[in-house]
Structure formats: structure tokens, C-alpha cells
Write a protein that binds this DNA or RNA. Structure first.
Lengths: 202, 202
DNA sequence: TTATAAACCAACCGATCGTTCGGTTGGTTT
DNA sequence: AAACCAACCGAACGATCGGTTGGTTTATAA
């Protein structure tokens, strides 16, 4: 089990750094000390190896958000959305290789032909969009969020925070320096225009 | 000049569809009808071919925005920002292959080692961020934009619109259906909280 | 018409690609 | 102890990779 795990770990780094075509099985063999044949003993081919990695990423992200939402205690919908945005950035910083993988193009290209790959990606994005959307809907009930279109605003919010996470790993932005401005932007975007200053409402 | 242009055109499509490593010179030769040696007659190697393409993309985008800003007549800073966001999406729809290239990871990876590549990418992003920032600053003078941090808000705005353009080409979103919600989000994000309803000031 | 250079070509190079294969371990199960 | 097993190995496969070569066509200008 040790070698197989080492292969998965090294391959995650390799795929994220060099892309699918750029990652070679020979280099993976060198990195792990596993012989060429060993890799193909554990995974039937290169694509299967990648799908194993992507599936693991999906599990990790989904269960991380699950845990976060279960533990946290939000006073209203707006705080839930803010928390989700903040946690997404935090997770992207903690799982840099995995998020770099998700920010590359080849998984989405592969998803066009491979239903398993498509399912993994859709699971991730559906889950995240649902969290944002539910926060908005809850906020519209409790008075913390304005009457914006929920699903569409969730998409815009997500593309905003994911874009910043992406530019951060590309080293074009510094996400940390943008953090407070980003949270303020979220509040302005979906928050009520004239709340009771303290936005704690039933 | 005909063959060289055909090579550039086909290579743009190939690089954007398959990435740098996935695009093969043999396939490019097949696509264009040019012999293998002919491609290396016009471009000294694969990387040089890509840099020629990236340079062309930079020229096209920069001059398109130059023309747009020269022709348009904005009443205030907020309208300028809205116009720039709108035009960016429009351009991304018109130049799908080029934007797909910019949304892949390999150009940013290459930029780490190749100063020419880095210069091209920085030129594009600096130009766009400057446009957004100037619109915000102008809006803060004419009263159409709130007192948000200019450069940081420009970055957030840009990552938002670029993220949507990216998800659109990945076929996860439909940018057209998000358009009006996006423009509204922009206005809420940086616009004054309580303008004169019609925000024509000064 | 001839000289010159640019454009173009097919053939070829060594290296590397993903993958396969025959065979060797060391530990369980029969 | 015989049979079986998954884990592991390294050599070898055909295909394809980016790039080079030497020679032929084409266009230009004297």
C-alpha cells in the first residue's frame, strides 16, 4: 500500500505542475522509486491514475466543506456566504497542488469525453455553488441579503473567489493582501443596501 | 507569407485546444499542409512559434481596448468600468481560441523562465487592470463610484469577469445568461450606495 | 537569361512517450 | 509442501516527439 500511495502523492504534484501531457510516467517512476511496471500494476493506465487523483480531490474538498459547515455557527445567510468564501480561499492555500490541478484546462477537456471525470468535476462545482446559493436564499429570508438572483449571484461570487485563488497560484495576485477588500466586495454585492448597521435580524 | 500565416493561425487553434505539450509539430504540419521543415524555417523552435502567437494576442487585445476606449464616450467612471467589463466579455466571445490560450496554465509556467513570455502576459494584465483602476478613480471624482480601494477593487473586478469568461469557455457557465446579473453585481460592488437614482452627476 | 535568396519539401535523427511482458519476490491459504 | 496471490521489477515495444538536413522550387531583380 505504501508504494501505491507514494505514486498517488507524487503524481498529484506532477500533474499539477506539468499538466497531463507534460507529466511522464518515466519521471513518476524516478520520483517514487517504483519501477515502470509497478505503476501500471496499480493503475491500468495514465488516465486511470489521474481519475484516482481527481476522485480523491473531490472527496477531500467535499468533506472539508461538510465539516466546516457542520462545525460553524452562522448568525445569518450573509455570514454563511462570507464564511464559505473565506474557507474556500483558506482551502486553496492549504491544498495548492490540488487546486492548481483544478485550475488547469485538461481536466475539463477530459470531462468532455470521460463521464467519470465529468462527474467528479460537476460534483465539486455543484456542491460549492449549492452552498453559496443556499447562503443567499437563507440571507434573503433573514434579511441579511438583498433580493439578488440567487443562483446567478452564487455563480458570480464563485467565479470571483475562484479567480482570485487562481491568480494567487499564478503569482499574479497576492490573495492575502486582497482578503479584506474581497470580503467587503462580497458584502456590498449581495448584502442589503441599508441594513440596521448591525445586520443581525431574525 | 501565406504559409507562415496559415501556420500561425492553425497553431493558435492547436495550442489553445491541446495545450503546449499536447500540440505536436507533426499535427500542425498535417493541418497546414506545410512540411515539417517549413515550420522550423519560419520559427526557430516550438517555443518561438508560441511566443509569436502570444505576442499577436497581446497586440490584438491591447489595440482592441485602445480603439474601444477612444470611440466610446462615458458619462462617468462607473460607466467606463461597466463598459470595460462588458467589452471584455464581448472580446472573449469573439476571440475564443486566444482567450482559451490565456486561460491555460502553460503560458504562466513558461513566464517563470522566459522573460519575453512574462512581458507579454504582464502587458495584457497590467493594461486591463489599469483601465479598471482608472475608471474607479475617475468615478470616485465624479461621484459615481464609492470609496473602495481602487487597485484592489480593479483586481477583484477583473478576476470576476475573467473567471466568468473562463467558465464560459469551459462550458460550465453560460456567460450570456449571467450578463445582466454581472453588470448589476459590478454596480453594487463599486457604485455609490445611495446615488440620485439616475447616477448622472456633475 | 542568369544569379540569388527566400520558401518549401521529404527523409531522417536520437530521444522519449505510454504501455506491455515475462519473471521474481515474500507472505497466505490449501 | 504445493498452490496461489498481489506487489514489484526492468527490459523492450512501436509510436511519436521536437528538430535537422540537403536539396528543390519559386520569386525577384540585374
Amino acid at each position: 500500500m505504501s508504494k501505491k500511495n507514494a505514486i498517488l502523492l507524487a503524481a498529484t504534484e506532477l500533474f499539477s505542475q506539468k499538466g497531463y501531457d507534460g507529466a511522464s510516467m518515466a519521471e513518476l517512476s524516478r520520483m517514487t522509486g517504483a519501477a515502470g511496471g509497478t505503476i501500471f500494476h496499480h493503475f491500468k493506465n495514465k488516465e486511470d491514475l489521474f481519475l484516482n487523483i481527481l476522485g480523491g480531490i473531490k472527496e477531500t474538498i467535499l468533506s472539508a466543506f461538510d465539516q466546516y459547515l457542520k462545525d460553524a455557527n452562522f448568525r445569518n445567510g450573509l455570514e454563511l456566504v462570507e464564511g464559505a468564501v473565506s474557507f474556500y480561499l483558506q482551502l486553496a492555500g492549504r491544498m495548492q497542488a490540488q487546486f492548481l490541478l483544478l485550475h488547469r484546462h485538461f481536466p475539463y477537456k477530459m470531462a468532455e469525453a470521460n463521464p467519470v471525470c465529468r462527474d467528479y468535476l460537476e460534483s465539486i462545482y455543484d456542491c460549492l455553488l449549492d452552498i453559496f446559493e443556499k447562503g443567499i436564499l437563507r440571507g434573503q429570508k433573514d434579511g441579511s441579503v438583498d433580493g439578488v438572483p440567487a443562483r446567478q449571484s452564487a455563480m458570480i461570487l464563485f467565479s470571483m473567489v475562484d479567480g482570485i485563488a487562481r491568480f494567487n497560484t499564478y503569482q499574479l495576485y497576492d490573495a492575502g493582501a486582497l482578503y479584506s477588500a474581497l470580503m467587503a466586495a462580497c458584502r456590498k454585492m449581495i448584502g442589503l443596501k441599508r441594513p440596521t448597521d448591525d445586520d443581525a435580524v431574525t
